[in-house]
Amino acid sequence: MDIEIPLVWDDRFLTGVDKIDEQHRVLVDTLNEAHDRLGDQPDIGLLDEITRNLLSYAIYHFETEETLMAEAGYGVQCPEDQEKHLLEHRNFSQTVVNLRNNIREGHVISRDELITFLSHWLVHHILHTDMHLGAYLSQPPRP
């Protein structure tokens, strides 16, 4: 699907799990923030703030999702989906750590690269992997 930035939050992002959706809004907002506030010239302070927020997001949001997975027996019912899902989470955190290392070493990520990374995450993870999880969690409880 096409991503038009700034991105307006709408129903197509809804997984059906309120807590997850609320936190996804933060990511969409971060994407818009990168678009609105980063210019062509690198702004190390702002990039530091954005990537710190992404690390924080990776902790609270992945905890939310992975706790829900565990509670709903996702790993038992859909072991391959869960494995893929967790791997994507770990890769996200690792990528953000790498971004920060690169910035520290003087290889500053450009605005477009950051937006591409986040849009890619949005399309491949939120609109795909998380939708699977959302559908699973929204099923009536199993006997």
Partner: peptide, 18 residues
């Protein structure tokens, strides 16, 4: 050693403390 997320290296959480 996060109860849900497993082992997190310092680079993933120390920046939050700022």
């Amino acid at each position: 050693n996060h109860p849900v997320l497993g082992i997190l290296p310092a680079s993933e959480f120390l920046p939050l403390l700022q």
